[in-house]
Every structure is written in C-alpha cells, then in structure tokens.
C-alpha cells in the first residue's frame, strides 16, 4: 500500500515538475471526436487511422462518437476541451463552412479551430443509371425540363455542390432530397425516379463497377475515367474545386509543438500499410496535408463558397 502511494506521489511530482508539452505523448489517452454515429464515412476513416496513430504516438487513441445537431455537436465538444492535444476531432468540410455561410449557428467558431491534418479528399462525379439513354451532361441539360437529382439533405455537401455546379453549367435542377444515405440516393437513380445523382467518385465506384450506374462527367481537372468528360472538357474548370475533405482539428490555440507531433503521427498513419490497403480497397483518395496546408485549404474553401452565398441562401 505504502509502496503504491509512494509511486503515486512520485508520478504526480514528475507530472507537476515536467512541462506537459514536452512530455507529449504522455500516458493519457487521446480522444478523436467523430461528429456522426458509428459506421459512417467519418467514423470509418477515424477508426481506420486510429490504430496506426496509436502506434506513432505511443499512447491510447480512442475514437468517440458525438453525433447530433447535423454534425455540430462533435465540433462543440472539441471546442470546449482543453487545448492540450488530448481531445481532437474530425470535421465535415465543406459542409460546416457552408452551414456557417448561410447563417447557421454551429455552436463553435470554425475559424478558430486549430487545423492538424487533412486525411483524405474526394472529388465529385455525375452518374446516371447503367441503361439510361443519357450519355453526357449535354443530354441531361436537353431533357426539356429541370433535371431531377437525388440527395440526402439540403445541407449535405453533395447537395450544395449540385446546386452550385448545375447553376454554373446553366441547367435548372430539382434536387429531390431526404434520402437516408448516399447509397439510397444512388438506388433512387437505379429505380428511375430521378435522372442522375452527383456524388463523390469513391462512393459511385461501387455501383459503376457493377454496371448499375454509369459516369457521365467527373468534376476533376484531369480525366479519371476514359470517355467521361472532366471539368475542363465541360468548359468549366472551376468545377474541379468542389470536393469533400476529411480534416482533423482541435480546440483553439493549440501549442505548435503538440500540433506538430500529432500531425506527424497522422502522416505516419497515412503511410502505413494497413491504411493504404484500406484506402485501395474502398477507393478512398488519401491526401495528407500539413497543418499549414490544411489551414490554407480551409481558407480557400471558405473563400470559394463565399462567391455562391446568395445561391445557397
């Protein structure tokens, strides 16, 4: 008993004496807040990275689901935590930027988030049913009526992208929202109740592989799939700026040393065999960015969507 007490006192003394920052990682566990329920895209990427990050940091890493309030409750939880690096989170980008832009109260300040890393990115593509007579975006626009698209919620990133992208293309749309998840939106195209859907390329891949869906355009600068028009060929290279990011951040004013250690750990994880294998099997485009680059990316995204503020309101 005495021995245990002594150990405790020594440990406490060591903790008190040493500057906490230099000790990172200490034995405390790191919590990564996921603002959605277990099983979704954000949850999956965090849980895939977590074991590798754990090895790199040498301390326990625990993903924690804090779902609710359209993904803002997780961000609020992170913003309230101490800026010591033990509580960080993943953010829905650009969904949160757009929500803020249209005047929604997120319950925290997106601009004050300390950005640690960007993990992955996905560009968008437009797909129709495999047996649809529609061959190109031009065909879609020449239907003689507004194009019907399927989407999850009005505030979802793909829905926002659809509204802006088809405005740029000059084609009127009816966005049928309310589908349960991105899979449901693609099945809506299969059922024929809508003409097309705009979704991340990685999500569409599962359906285009089996021939159930067919790509007619990718919102990318370069050609991704043969015979499928890219943004440049559509005559609107700016469409390639739309994307879905998986960015990791923490509370405001995190010390730079801690950010550097965490950022390096995510980089090691992104280069680990397990993560790369997972990314290949799921069609995820890994794209690790440094804290500086992630912060710059966030600024670009806010600026980009600001142009379309009126359209979104």
């Amino acid at each position: 008993m005495n021995n245990l007490l002594l150990k405790g006192v020594v440990a406490a003394a060591m903790l008190a004496a040493s500057p906490v920052l230099a000790e990172f990682p200490s034995d405390d566990r790191v919590t990564i807040v996921v603002p959605y329920s277990a099983g979704g895209g954000f949850d999956t990427i965090v849980r895939t990275f977590a074991p590798a990050v754990e090895i790199a940091l040498g301390t326990t890493v625990i993903p924690e689901n804090v779902p609710g309030a359209s993904g803002t409750r997780g961000g609020q939880a992170v913003s309230r935590a101490a800026a010591d690096g033990y509580t960080i989170g993943i953010y829905n980008i650009p969904g949160l930027n757009v929500a803020e832009l249209v005047g929604r109260d997120l319950g925290f300040d997106l601009a004050s988030v300390t950005w640690i890393a960007n993990l992955a990115q996905s560009n968008y593509a437009i797909a129709v049913a495999g047996d649809s007579p529609i061959q190109s975006v031009q065909d879609l626009c020449n239907l003689g009526r507004p194009i019907k698209l399927s989407d999850t919620g009005t505030n979802s990133t793909s829905s926002i992208t659809s509204v802006i992208a088809f405005d740029i293309l000059g084609c009127p749309i009816v966005n049928v929202t309310g589908y349960g998840g991105s899979n449901d939106t693609m099945i809506a195209v299969l059922r024929g109740e809508v003409d097309a859907t705009l979704k991340p390329i990685s999500s569409l891949a599962r359906y285009t592989d089996t021939g159930d869906l067919r790509l007619i355009a990718t919102l990318t600068e370069e050609t991704v799939a043969e015979g499928v028009q890219n943004a440049v060929e559509l005559g609107h290279p700016e469409l390639a700026q739309f994307g879905l990011s998986r960015a990791i951040g923490g509370p405001a004013d995190m010390p730079a040393e801690i950010v550097a250690i965490l950022s390096a750990a995510f980089r090691t994880a992104a280069e680990s065999e397990d993560v790369i294998m997972w990314a290949e099997s799921t069609g995820t485009e890994l794209n690790w960015l440094s804290p500086e680059d992630t912060t710059a990316m966030m600024a670009d995204i806010s600026e980009f969507y600001l142009q379309y503020q009126d359209l979104l309101k």
Binding site: A38, G39, D43, T44, R47, G181, D184, Y207, T210, S281
Partner: peptide
C-alpha cells in the same frame, strides 16, 4: 442486393465490414 442496411443493426453490421476493409455495395 445493394449492400445497404435494412435496419439500424444491419447498418452497424456493415460498419463492422467496412472496418475490415470490405466495402459494402451492390457487389
């Protein structure tokens, strides 16, 4: 049929599959 969940339980079951690198989908 499509790798989509029919219930909350199957949604989590698919989540477990995803964790093991299996991508749910029509195939």
């Amino acid at each position: 049929a499509f790798g989509i969940p029919g219930s909350a339980e199957t949604a989590l079951f698919l989540g477990i599959l995803v964790l093991h690198g299996i991508d749910p989908g029509p195939a």
